Amino acid sequence: MSDSNILYSTQNTDPNRGLTPSPKAPSGTCKAERQTILLDADDTLWENNIYFEQAIAAFISYLDHRVHSADEVREHLNLCERATIAAHGYGLKSFRKSLVNCFEKLSDAPMTPEKHDRIVSFTNSISDANIELLPGVAETLAELSKRHRLILVTKGNVEEQTQKLHRSGLAPLFSAVEVLEEKHDTAYRTVIQRHACDSANTWMVGNSPRSDINPALAAGLHAVFIPHDYTWVLEHETVNQPSAGQHLLELARFSDLLLHF
């Protein structure tokens, strides 16, 4: 098994990753039995954060702060985003509020209607962007849906996420869709109960350690980590070690799921 397709065990922990490859674990061990596969959406099935990063770059350039560096402005924006999410949840409207709040905190000049409209305009490319599926997603999901139960488990604004799913053309491949306010272990347990999932045969697939992998493991599920080069900074977190009896796969490509399921 190559380094890009590693099944992790709970022995011989590597302190640099918190995980250790199990060289004896064969690929394709889940193909013989029907599994329930929970799948994240943004930056797992389609591009998402790159559009937010473009908007943030435009915002920082427009602010052109005389004291704070671009990295420092980004740190301020991260704080604003955390506060806005806590008060208003995820989604494009929340992101717009964060940009406006950050500008008001850092700018020496007062906010005007013209400046407000200019800041909001930076986010137009996000809502206008076509859904760009990540490589191999459509073909892989079509094949997996023949053998396994697929459930979309994402978080954010229900209307925004539902629209993106339908625009993606992937909706018919899922037996159910869950749009959560937040992804934590309690939320995953609720999903498990609602859909009568057997934890021993249920996997969460995603790119975010914070929202997809660690809370799913905490809820007793197996997990598949597919890193994305531009995962949102607020989703960064050290990947936890799976408990005894759990499995964690790290794959380089979405299509590698077919090697195991």
Rank of each mutant, 00 (worst) to 15 (best):
S2E: 12
I6H: 11
I6N: 06
L7M: 11
L7C: 15
L7Y: 11
Q11K: 15
Q11V: 12
N12D: 15
N12I: 03
D14F: 08
P15Q: 03
P15F: 04
R17A: 08
L19E: 00
P23V: 05
K24Q: 12
K24S: 14
A25W: 01
A25V: 02
T29S: 11
Q35P: 01
Q35R: 09
T44F: 03
E47A: 14
A55G: 12
I56P: 00
I56G: 00
F59A: 13
F59Q: 06
Y62H: 14
Y62K: 10
D64N: 15
V67I: 14
H68I: 01
H68Q: 08
S69T: 15
A70E: 13
V73M: 15
V73N: 04
E75V: 06
C80P: 00
E81H: 02
A83G: 00
A83M: 07
A86D: 15
H88M: 04
Y90G: 05
G91C: 07
K93E: 15
K93L: 11
F95K: 08
L99P: 04
N101Q: 13
K105D: 14
D108A: 06
D108T: 07
P110M: 09
P113I: 11
H116N: 13
H116M: 09
D117T: 12
R118G: 00
F122A: 02
T123K: 04
T123C: 15
N124P: 00
N124V: 03
S125F: 03
A129I: 09
N130W: 00
I131Q: 02
I131N: 02
P135K: 07
V137W: 02
A142C: 09
A142N: 11
E143C: 03
R149S: 06
L152E: 07
V153Q: 01
V158M: 01
V158T: 12
Q161I: 08
H166I: 06
H166S: 12
S168I: 06
G169V: 10
A171T: 13
A176W: 11
E178K: 10
L180M: 15
E181L: 09
H184G: 08
D185C: 10
T186F: 13
T186W: 05
Y188H: 06
R189A: 07
V191T: 12
Q193I: 01
R194H: 14
D198Y: 03
D198T: 08
N201M: 06
N201Q: 14
W203I: 02
W203T: 04
V205L: 02
R210E: 10
S211H: 13
I213Y: 02
I213M: 01
N214T: 04
P215T: 03
L217W: 03
A219H: 02
A219F: 04
G220S: 05
G220R: 01
L221E: 09
L221G: 11
L221H: 11
V224L: 01
F225D: 04
F225P: 01
H228N: 13
L234R: 14
E235M: 13
H236E: 14
T238Q: 15
V239I: 14
P242R: 01
S243V: 03
H247F: 12
L249D: 00
E250A: 14
R253W: 07
R253T: 09
F254V: 03
F254L: 07
S255M: 05
L257Y: 04
L258P: 04
L259I: 03
H260C: 08
H260S: 05
F261M: 07
